[in-house]
Amino acid sequence: METVIEKTNVNVDIEALRKEIIKEENIVFKKTIGLTDNPLSYCPGCGHGVVHRLIGEVCEEMEIIQDVIAIAPVGCSVFAYDFFNLDTQSAAHGRAPAVATGVKRTMPDKYVFTYQGDGDLAAIGTGETIHAANRGENITIIFINNGIYGMTGGQMAPTTLLNMKSSTSPYGREMDVHGYPLNITDMIAPLRGVCYATRQSVHTPANVRKAKAAIKKAFEYQKLKKGLSIVEIMSNCNSGWKMTPVQSNKWMEENMLENFPLGDIKVPQDK
């Protein structure tokens, strides 16, 4: 194993510690079998990787890997089909909910989820998103919102905040010119076909745990055929925002969450 634990300025017998602690039965966390061994193509510190892992963990824990069909989008997560250890289809830009509809309607006993970014879901795929939601397709949408087009180099997204700079709004997003940030999860939550809509984030360990619980819930509602579930996950784009990963998480908490507050937006009413 290509592990390194270096002894620096501490006076600890690291080898003795290793010998004592590094045992199979002491593992409290390891990489999920829901992901492949392919190294992720994301920038260092990108939230995509965390969300990928959470989905993989949920599939592993629910023991449903053999029953899941994932739909990957176009955007930074276009290679998701190489990272999930799942059967995966890669959809055209914005079309994932339609592709998922085709899959779910013909494979109704499988868990089907789409993994989409804000450009894919809230711009080019708005129509597919709304109508899949309105039909109450029994699918789960995992929606990564980082307020920017990461893959193409940091252009303005529908979710970009007012005054936020991007390569296509270099002086900041102006309401008069570009309109307001689009809050699509709140928009589709009232639709009767949507059973569960929630907004989570992965910028702290506690938030990561909550996000995972939300993903799990969404999959459980899918099993119960309750309709469409959408889990929006606020994420950083440190490259696009031109910050370090740590700074970007802080910036997100201070700026993004005001526009996109965390928490459940809609939960199933019946037991």
Binding site: I21, K23, N26, K31, G47, G49, V208
Partner: peptide, 13 residues
């Protein structure tokens, strides 16, 4: 929890 690349294995006694 926060590692995006799942490179960390955690042991505990």
């Amino acid at each position: 929890m926060v590692c995006p690349d799942s490179v960390i294995t955690v042991y505990r006694v």
